[in-house]
């Protein structure tokens, strides 16, 4: 039981980084960006290739971050310069990344067993593997949350937030909305790719199919976080994403423990997200908003 929660916590912290990336496009820019399905694998692929060819794991992880940022830039350019709808731009980059990821890895999967990775330092300090992951995961998440809280409070960050909210107003205030969208996509995919690199090193392998459905997992975590942990101010919102990602992992761990076949996981996640997105409508249907009609307004 404790082991299950501990495992979910470690995995949740790593997926939280990816979830924050999804939040930036989905909630701040109001774009459903499918690039993430490719950039999470890209991060894993870059890190795996770097580590298996003997590079320092921290350097490999950093390169993975830049790789994801480049993927975000591609989607941003397709969308803003070539005027391809955001959803389709993301799909195009995602598909292109499938080939690129195969090129990076040279094969469909790379095993990282018994190789030094970013967690090794903590394990050498005497921590067991799960605690090593939790330590590094929590540190990364904390740094990212603080950095983003600062960034989205700056002039540039405010302009990006406003772009997702009302692009007409933003242009009237002299801001290039295209640039803002591109910056947002770069940050988002950089984080997703970083998450992918950390996840690959945690599970000790990278696989070409590991990105499939990751956008849905990201969305599920965003929504769980918002529903359960509120959205009072921006700092709390960022933290709620972390708690959302962890909660998602705990839920998954429990349904697996209750006997659900792991092949059915994606179906389960998709249904959960569909229900969560439909919640406002379901609420209105079950409990219609009451409209009070005054005496004078009633039909005679």
């Amino acid at each position: 039981m404790v082991e299950v929660v501990k495992g979910a916590l470690s995995l949740g912290l790593l997926w939280a980084i990816m979830t924050i990336g999804v939040y930036i496009t989905y909630r701040i820019l109001s774009i459903a960006d499918l690039t993430v399905e490719g950039s999470i694998t890209l991060g894993a692929a870059i890190a795996a290739h770097a580590i298996s060819s003997g590079m320092n794991p921290y350097l490999g992880t950093l390169i993975a971050l830049f790789g994801g940022m480049a993927a975000g830039l591609c989607t941003g350019l397709l969308h803003t310069k070539l005027k391809i709808p955001a959803l389709l731009s993301g799909i195009l980059t995602m598909i292109a990344l499938y080939s690129i990821n195969l090129r990076v890895m040279g094969k469909a999967n790379i095993s990282l067993l018994r190789m030094e990775n970013v967690y090794t330092v903590f394990e050498n300090m005497g921590l067991e593997p799960t605690w090593a992951t939790i330590t590094l995961g929590a540190m990364s998440v904390l740094v990212i949350v603080c950095l983003l809280y600062w960034f989205f409070g700056t002039e540039l960050g405010c302009a990006i937030r406003a772009t997702g909210n009302n692009p007409y107003m933003v242009r009237a205030q002299g801001i290039n909305t295209n640039t803002m969208i591109i910056i947002g996509l770069i940050i988002s995919n950089g984080l997703v790719s970083l998450g992918g690199a950390l996840i690959a090193q945690n599970q000790n392998f990278s696989d070409i199919g590991m990105g499939t459905g990751s956008i849905v997992i990201g969305l599920a975590s965003v929504i769980i976080g918002e529903v359960l942990f509120g959205k009072r101010n921006f700092f709390m919102r960022l933290l709620s994403l972390v708690f959302g990602a962890i909660t998602y992992r705990i839920i998954i761990a429990f349904v697996l423990k209750l006997g659900m076949h792991s092949n059915d996981l994606k179906l389960f996640t998709a249904i959960t997200v569909a229900i969560a997105l439909a919640l406002p409508m379901i609420k209105d249907f079950v409990n219609p908003p009451k409209i009070s009609i005054g005496e004078g307004e009633q039909d005679a």
Binding site: F151, G153, T154, E155, L156, G157, C158, A159, R161, A162, N165, N166, M169, V170, Q173, G174, I175
Partner: peptide
């Protein structure tokens, strides 16, 4: 106006109209 942003954030966006947006606090 940007409806999901607070009043002072909207005003701050407008005060900087036509100026480069940097990493100073908003």
């Amino acid at each position: 106006t940007a409806s999901d942003m607070i009043l002072e954030e909207n005003l701050a966006l407008a005060l900087r109209r036509g100026k480069a947006r940097g990493l100073r606090w908003g």
